[in-house]
Design a protein around this nucleic acid. Sequence first.
DNA 1: CTGTTAGCGCTTTCAT
DNA 2: ATGAAAGCGCTAACAG
Lengths: 356, 356
Amino acid sequence: MANEEWRAWPRKRRKWGEVLAKKRVTLADVARLAGLSTTAASMILTGRPDTRLSAEAHAKVHAAAASLGYRPNIAARALRTDKTRTIAFISDYVATTRFASGLIRGALAGAEQAQHVMLVLETGGEPAREIQAIEAALDRQVDGLIFAAMRAREVFVPDIAINVPTVMLNGTSPRFPVSILPDEYRGGRAAVELLAGAGIREGIVLLGYNEKEETGLFRSETVTNRLAGIRDAMAAAGTTFVAELSCWNWEPDHGYDLTRTVLKSLKPRALLCLNDRLAFGAYQALDEAGLAIPEDVALVSFDNDEIASYLRPGLTTIGLPHEEMGRMAISLLLGTPTPARVLVEMPVVLRGSLPR
Amino acid sequence: MANEEWRAWPRKRRKWGEVLAKKRVTLADVARLAGLSTTAASMILTGRPDTRLSAEAHAKVHAAAASLGYRPNIAARALRTDKTRTIAFISDYVATTRFASGLIRGALAGAEQAQHVMLVLETGGEPAREIQAIEAALDRQVDGLIFAAMRAREVFVPDIAINVPTVMLNGTSPRFPVSILPDEYRGGRAAVELLAGAGIREGIVLLGYNEKEETGLFRSETVTNRLAGIRDAMAAAGTTFVAELSCWNWEPDHGYDLTRTVLKSLKPRALLCLNDRLAFGAYQALDEAGLAIPEDVALVSFDNDEIASYLRPGLTTIGLPHEEMGRMAISLLLGTPTPARVLVEMPVVLRGSLPR
DNA sequence: CTGTTAGCGCTTTCAT
DNA sequence: ATGAAAGCGCTAACAG
């Protein structure tokens, strides 16, 4: 399983503790060196405004802190202040669907900017692990909780006491009013408008519509809203789909099969795919059929998955604004509570799969 | 940018603090309810073995804790014990290359299993942010540090005092002897042996060899070792490459271009691609040239990127054992220090791009 | 303007 | 067998 190759270092193995050394410098050390009280040192180092200590005192304390390399012990501070400058990010899956990792990245960036730090916990969507994760976070006195779902949906949050601000990210929960979601409705509209803008109003096939929205992984309002936007925009453009193909999951294989099915009976002008992986499969089927993209068939899709940029021609897609959403979760958490549903705009990513 | 839709909840906005309630139950509360001292409660709840308190005391304390929903304050405990059961995972990028997120997932899983929790920090490889990340972690009294690199390489670790166990994950550093890497040499051998096993010993093209290994993103020993394994295995099989194509980066476009170049001058039997994205580009070029995989041209590649499973036929590839590596980082950190370089075996993932 | 004192919640000698 | 008291490092009242 693992192949170990031993290196020089210690002759005899020792415990980690023995390998390391020196205890941390404390505030008392700084105060002592500066010849002042810990109180003075504390006030000066935390930069409290109201209290006026001599400029000389300031200088001495800062000099002492610097020369000793002093760093505050945040755990100790938290005992007094009840603030750890730490936020927990609890999600069902971590970057399993690679693009959803944008949620973490955005949150991480937001936290860093706000001088906070993030505890990341994965629950697999299992209630038992969710409870453990919440408790582990709360036990460490985090200042806030972000509950993230990798696929937008209503999230079940265990009914245990949570006494810190909480934000639902890419999901909703009746218990927590603050939630952040992609603006799927407008995204859906945008996709259709893109086609219309390219002069395509006829011969459009919808790929991946899930007949039973209440089934499977996508029982969320997400896909419902996306579809609502699509249908409204189609109606507004005064057209209808020439065909609607449904499937139970959005993987490349399904896109491939669906597209082959379509091509048997008709010659579509465009494929509107409900996500990029379906579109990927569609590319394969279109290639096999000798149809050129976008001359024969145009494609528009959703998610801005990484593969969208790999395809040739590149896939035009309505992206999920995950990074922006993650960032927003932090600012909502750290700001005044906003008991609202925040909808974040989905970016339009233009590539070659649409005629210009 | 963000579209806000206000929901029912509070008439007037309040601060988060006012929205929440009740202070935490403390050990003193438990002790009081049990009619014992905090000392007794502490000993019983932490399950210290040597001290023998009455069975009755045990029962009372546990009952009290349960009925109050007591949870220890780990920050406070850390003040005494110097153990936070928290580990920091500091990496240059978080899941930017989607498959590298396996490192995090593995570490997360390992931490959870060991009842620890993980602080995740991203540095972008910038020294200033690295310092901040280390300090932020150390200030929170983490029990250990994992330094991860998303692409295996030698990692620069800022020269600041680090007084906790540290493991380099997917990277090396002269300062920290414990490091975990994929066993690239054996992986390289495996790839060639796969081809040989399929009866292919002639007409093999190497795709993506970087002439100047010291340039660009891959100055690591990783690619060097991978290539060494490949060359040794080729020699062992008594054959040589019919062509070696180099490029400066491993993206689909390069694989596409390189393959087209190859096809101009010869008809290869197999392509050995140094990563899956190159292979992806190669697929596109082969498709265009009307060559069938694996009948005309076989492919073997590295990484087991997600796209490898999307391709048709599926791409046979030597995977990066990131999840296993992440898990191992935790166990090394929490166990006895192992001042060694641990090499983790790369899994062989068989799919249709190789004739059977 | 500065220092003393108290205590956050917990574990740990050390008495009883 | 159990509890009192000290103290981890820090900040907040309150004196001086």
